[in-house]
Amino acid sequence: MTSLTLVRRIRARPAIVFAALSTPEGITHWWGPDAGPVLLAESDARVGGRFRVRFRMLDGSEHEAVGEYIEVVDGKRLVMTWQWAFGGEPDEGAEVSSVTIDLRAIDTGTELTFTHARLQTENSCRSHTCGWNGALDKLERYLS
């Protein structure tokens, strides 16, 4: 089981961050990892609803991610499945992973906690190897 957690403090209220994350209009403004355009954005942010986003990167490659909303708490929390329909990481294939985003109001705006994890399957994850956390720091200490 492998997961990645990132935390960001954003100078905007949670409702605005939530709209940026979950509405097609919001998604078109930031989804790609570089300044390339978002070509298509569909998002039905309710439990069981789906999203589909296609974007082009500056190197000309096109990628499309799809998924389903598993948990939606307005202004606070989004849990969704994540899968590349095409493009994406070449060695990741069409493996399904999960993305969890939590928003917390702070004085200066919103603290966003983002977690990307592979979905747990019985084959790839026995209970004692799951829930692995914060290892990036630990690994870096080992290798430094």
């Binding site: 990645l4 990132l6 960001r8 954003i10 100078r11 905007a12 209220r13 605005i16 961050v17 709209a19 940026a20 994350l21 919001g26 403004h29 930031w30 989804w31 790609g32 990892p33 570089d34 705006g109 919103t110 966003l112 983002f114 990307h116």
Partner: peptide
């Protein structure tokens, strides 16, 4: 790096909207 760049872009957009 992939997610980090995207979250940076999200933050910039949300801050402009704010």
């Amino acid at each position: 790096s992939f997610w980090s760049r995207r979250l940076d872009r999200l933050a910039e957009y949300a801050e402009r909207e704010e």
